[in-house]
């Protein structure tokens, strides 16, 4: 899917790059900031960043694809992330994940057709006392069981 970047978007990206003195060493910080603004980092945005920092677009893509924090696909309106740290795993996170996949009808990394939910796994939120842990946006749900999944998702209907 091709995306048309608006002139104002290109200006915005330029401003972010300028705020880091267009220093290629700050590439990761530039990407963090840009993703904060746009929600994701499609090819077109990567090209603009590469041009501003004076580096090949392959290097930008290399970094974006290396780090799991960066995404080239837009997330759902509500980003559902299940903790898959060891503590959550041994306390049954896998069963919760199966239930989430079933309820949302998507795989890990996917977005529901209406764009409402996206599903991801993350490694350790650090709230191991509450394992298994689920995050929707900033809100944390603890001590989850598969039977609670439906109710939690219903809060966002």
């Amino acid at each position: 899917m091709k995306i048309e970047l608006h002139d104002s978007h290109i200006r915005q990206i330029k401003e972010i790059c300028d705020s880091f003195d267009n220093n290629p060493g700050e590439l990761i910080n530039v990407l963090h900031k840009t993703q904060n603004v746009f929600g994701y980092l499609p090819e077109e945005i990567q090209r603009v960043i590469a041009r501003n920092l004076g580096i090949p677009v392959t290097r930008v893509y290399g970094v974006v694809s290396f780090y799991s924090f960066f995404t080239m696909k837009p997330k759902g309106k509500y980003a559902v992330s299940l903790c898959m740290g060891t503590a959550c795993y041994v306390r049954g996170a896998e069963d919760v994940l199966d239930e989430l996949k079933k309820e949302l009808g998507i795989e890990v990394g996917g977005v529901t057709e209406d764009g409402k939910f996206s599903l991801d796994c993350l490694r350790c939120v650090g709230a191991c006392g509450l394992a298994p842990v689920l995050m929707i946006g900033e809100k944390v749900y603890g001590r989850l069981t598969p039977s609670m999944v439906k109710g939690v998702l219903a809060e966002y209907e």
Binding site: P24, N29, L31, F66, Y67, F69, R123
Partner: peptide
């Protein structure tokens, strides 16, 4: 402060340094 971006291998010190320089870790 330098922010990581989700890569376990960046805990290894040489990888961490590359990441801080804006490269793949």
């Amino acid at each position: 402060l330098r922010l990581g971006a989700g890569a376990f291998v960046c805990g290894e010190e040489t990888a961490l340094i590359h990441s801080m320089e804006g490269f793949r870790g």
